[in-house]
Design a protein around this nucleic acid. Structure first.
Length: 137
DNA sequence: GCCAACGTTGGC
DNA sequence: GCCAACGTTGGC
């Protein structure tokens, strides 16, 4: 079981929309590191859903529901997607500010490599954030 | 809206 | 293979 973090601008695709739709294909990733992270995902892995630009906070937990497969929206290049389903929103969103100010979380890829849209999360980080979010899975 | 950080492209 | 130029992301 691995843990991840997925970024999306909420005015492009928000967590509440994922909850409403029940499932989405995580399309459009055009960065090799992010793509390789998706290729390392397994069905059942859990991921945080982070709202970039607007909110700048982790708002929910979702589950990876497929292995990586070819991105049908890519007209050229070797890109991948995974299917994602919602698990539950965080009772308390965990802001980037909170994460940066917490020594246990300040090494997260979210902080260290702010441009990476699909990043790994350690088990320790995952449960720390759940605790800050007052949420149990 | 600005700009720093980062990744990619292309000329040499 | 290096590096300057450019484009994009995302925090501020």
């Amino acid at each position: 079981m691995a843990y991840w973090l997925l970024k999306s601008e909420p005015d492009v695709y928000s967590f509440s929309r994922l909850e409403k739709e029940g499932r989405t294909m995580w399309e459009g990733v055009r960065n090799y590191q992010a793509r390789n992270n998706m290729r390392a995902m397994q069905p059942g892995d859990l991921a945080f859903f982070y709202h970039s630009n607007i909110g700048k906070e982790i708002v929910g937990v979702c589950r990876i529901d497929s292995e990586a497969y070819a991105d049908p929206t890519a007209d050229k290049g070797d890109w991948s997607v995974v299917d994602v389903v919602p698990v539950k929103p965080l009772q308390v969103p965990v802001s980037l500010k909170t994460i940066k100010s917490d020594p246990a979380l300040a090494d997260m890829a979210l902080v260290k490599n702010s441009r990476l849209s699909v990043s790994p999360v350690t088990e320790e980080e995952f449960f720390n954030i759940l605790r800050l979010g007052a949420t149990h899975i």
